[in-house]
């Protein structure tokens, strides 16, 4: 490939493999889902599906559970991503220092992330268990509570408990991503700052933060999308209950799709979530436009 002749088409050549694989696999299912959302499609009666236009979407807007789930989704995404980022950032900065067992610490911190969601869900359910849970036992021993609490059955505590499990699972992601980002910060910059007598905090604000900002922003964006769509841990821990207390949008769509097999309605619910996420991405892309086009 000579650069002179291939120039205008070169970037597309580089893109082709990735586009080809994703497009073959994902285009058809996505198109299908959009078609479902415009029909009263029931999985067990595919032949009876009729085109209903925007009726599913209008029904979604009138559905009380949609709004409850949406509110929970906002709390869910905001809370989890923020906590994961904060904890991950601290962990990454610490694991970037040199101490003799750093390699081991880095390998151990990844463990929560290395476990399948179904195990995480079951373990945390068991930890939170009213009768045989270790959390109640520990808290009672150290005197924080005087009788066992039904953590997962409390309409107010249930969502927080499931979120804690997800924060635990996902903070190593940020730790590792940021740790990799820190490696791109030239050491010379710290040396220069040191000579200028900058404090550790000022070094972080003026040297570290700007250098990793792009990577952190991308990681946050990807994480928002991932957390917004994740439902397996909720499904295992509470199934969305008690009542609607841990219903998030994908969970509600899941229940409508698989318990009711109402694929039309569920697809409309899912697409509402997609549109909301698109708005976030749009904001991000606009903000990052300068960097993206840099």
């Amino acid at each position: 490939m000579t650069q002179a002749t291939a120039r205008p088409l070169t970037p597309y050549g580089f893109l082709l493999p990735a586009l080809l694989v994703t497009a073959t696999v994902i285009l058809y299912p996505v198109a299908q889902t959009i078609v479902f959302s415009l029909q009263d499609y029931l999985l067990y009666a595919p032949d009876d599906a009729r085109f209903v236009g925007a009726r599913n979407f209008l029904a979604v807007l009138k559905d009380e559970v949609f709004w409850i789930s949406l509110r929970h989704s906002a709390v869910w995404v905001g809370g989890i991503v923020f906590a994961q980022l904060a904890l991950g950032l601290v962990a990454a900065l610490l694991l970037n220092q040199s101490f003799w067992w750093r390699g081991l610490a880095r390998a151990l911190v990844i463990i929560p992330w290395a476990l399948p969601s179904v195990i995480i869900g079951l373990m945390w359910t068991w930890i939170f268990d009213f009768n045989t849970g270790v959390l109640n036992d520990v808290l009672m021993r150290i005197g924080i509570i005087d009788q066992p609490q039904a953590w997962l059955a409390g309409p107010r505590s249930a969502l927080a408990c499931v979120m804690l499990a997800l924060v635990w699972q996902g903070f190593p992601f940020f730790a590792i991503m940021i740790l990799a980002g820190l490696q791109t910060v030239p050491k010379e910059l710290y040396e220069a700052a040191e000579i200028d007598g900058a404090s550790a905090f000022r070094q972080f604000v003026h040297v570290t933060a700007p250098a990793i900002a792009g990577i952190v922003a991308t990681a946050v964006l990807l994480r928002i999308i991932w957390v917004a769509n994740s439902l397996d841990v909720i499904l295992v821990m509470t199934g969305g209950g008690p009542g609607y207390a841990t219903h998030t949008l994908p969970l509600y769509a899941f229940l409508r799709a698989y318990s009711g097999m109402e694929f039309g309605y569920a697809a409309a619910l899912a697409l509402m979530l997609t549109v909301l996420l698109l708005a976030i991405v749009w904001l991000y892309v606009r903000r990052q436009a300068k960097e993206l086009d840099a």
Partner: peptide, 9 residues
């Protein structure tokens, strides 16, 4: 019933 009954499976 135990307070955890609403989500006990």
């Amino acid at each position: 019933v135990p307070p955890s009954a609403p989500t006990d499976a």
